[in-house]
């Protein structure tokens, strides 16, 4: 049995991301890292596969740059890595991504649980996660902060979810797709041996034809990237003793009508 997780390479979290004169997104010479939310899903996949006595597999959808994230996954200790890449696939369209992702899970054949990090910071969404579950026809449990219990034989799963205003405990049936939050675990660092092994690994690349997907066409298209409008605010520094600055600040906040 396999526990499957999806990951991708995104610009280093501290990198300055900009749109260049040619309209392309750049982040200077900064390196890519594993999508920050995926540290937790990769760790959870290793742990869940370990507990179930199964294998863990990481899959990335997109260009060769995502091999870096897959190598990080292998270095952390995931057993397998695959990448889906096809000129006809627009992975910024969440439904195209989900269609390919669901087909890859089906191709692996023996997955019971698919784990995603909460969202992808580059595309800025989690739509593709829910849509992967719907394309598979599986249970979707988002924002999971803890897996309370999982029983593959009985086909049941119980999790804690972090939603607005509190924590839910939900029970549901397997197979399932879950998205995990930051406090689900403490991600491990890749070991030296893991990094060496990952460096030598060759990652199979699947085309849409390999997955049996045809006629994929994006319904949502990104047409342009743009830099943020500059924040035109000029900072006003308030000085004096604490009572003075407090009074000055309250004067200004009342004038701004934000209180």
């Amino acid at each position: 049995m396999r526990i499957v997780t999806f990951t991708r390479s995104t610009p280093d979290t501290a990198a300055k991301v900009e749109v260049g004169g040619d309209g392309a997104v750049t982040w200077g010479g900064a390196a890519t890292v594993v999508n920050p939310w995926d540290e937790y899903s990769l760790e959870e996949a290793i742990q869940q596969a370990g507990k179930a006595g199964g294998k863990s597999a990481a899959i990335a959808v997109g260009a060769p740059m995502h091999d870096d994230a897959l190598k990080h996954a292998l270095a952390m200790g995931l057993d397998e890595a695959y990448r889906i890449d096809d000129a006809a696939l627009d992975a910024t369209d969440s439904l195209s991504y989900a269609t390919a992702a669901a087909a890859a899970v089906t191709k692996l054949g023996d997955a019971k649980l698919v784990i995603f990090g909460k969202e992808s910071v580059d595309v800025g969404t989690d739509s593709h996660i829910v849509q992967t579950a719907r394309k598979l026809g599986w249970t979707m449990l988002s924002y999971v902060s803890k897996i309370v219990s999982v029983d593959y034989a009985a086909g049941t799963l119980k999790v804690e979810r972090l939603v607005e205003g509190g924590k839910q405990v939900v029970s549901a049936s397997l197979p399932a797709v879950i998205s995990v939050m930051k406090d689900i675990n403490e991600p491990r660092y890749p070991s030296f041996m893991g990094i060496r092994k990952a460096a030598k690994a060759s990652i199979p690349v699947w085309s849409l034809a390999d997955l049996g997907v045809s006629g994929l066409r994006a319904k949502a298209k990104t047409t342009r990237f743009a830099n943020l409008p500059a924040r035109t605010v000029e900072v006003e520094m308030l000085t004096g003793d604490p009572e003075d600055v407090a009074a000055k600040l309250v004067d200004r906040l009342l004038a701004e009508k934000v209180l």
Partner: peptide, 12 residues
Amino acid sequence: VYAGKILSDAVA
């Protein structure tokens, strides 16, 4: 997109 560092236009 990109963690709020840039914006994108999209059409459905």
